[in-house]
Amino acid sequence: MSTHTDMKRLTRLSAILLQLQTRRLINANDLAEKFVVSVRTIYRDIRVLEQIGVPIASFEGKGYSLAEGYKIPPIMFTEQEANALITAQQLINLNKDSSLIDTYKEAVDKVKAVLNYSTKDKVELLSKRVAVSPASMEQPTSNSLATIQNALTSFSVLRIHYKAEGKNESSARLIEPFAFYYSMQQHWTLIAFCRLRNDFRMFRLDRIEAVYSTDLKFATHQLSLQEYLQEKEKNFTSPDKQLS
Rank of each mutant, 00 (worst) to 15 (best):
T3F: 13
A151C: 06
Y43S: 13
L94V: 06
P55W: 03
R195P: 01
Y212C: 11
L91W: 12
P239F: 05
N168S: 13
E33S: 09
R197V: 03
Q51E: 15
A179V: 06
W188K: 05
V39G: 08
P74H: 04
K8P: 08
A219C: 13
G53H: 02
S170Y: 05
Q139R: 14
L100Q: 04
S38D: 15
A15W: 00
E231V: 09
I46E: 00
N29W: 07
K163I: 07
R197C: 08
F59K: 08
M202F: 01
A151S: 11
K96D: 15
I175C: 12
T237I: 15
Q51K: 14
S156L: 11
T87E: 03
E50Y: 07
L223R: 13
Q21D: 14
S99K: 07
S2R: 01
T220L: 13
L152C: 03
T11Q: 13
A164I: 03
A219S: 14
E169C: 11
H221Q: 00
Q51V: 12
A28N: 01
S65M: 01
L10T: 10
I72M: 00
Q149T: 13
A219K: 15
R173A: 13
V48Y: 11
F218A: 03
R204Y: 06
S99D: 05
Q185Y: 02
L223N: 07
K128Q: 10
S154F: 10
L190G: 01
G53L: 01
A210L: 14
S144G: 10
S238V: 01
I16W: 04
R129W: 11
V108A: 07
K167Y: 08
Y182G: 08
M7I: 12
Q149I: 11
Q226F: 14
F35Y: 09
V111C: 03
K34H: 05
L20H: 02
A107D: 04
E124K: 11
N198E: 12
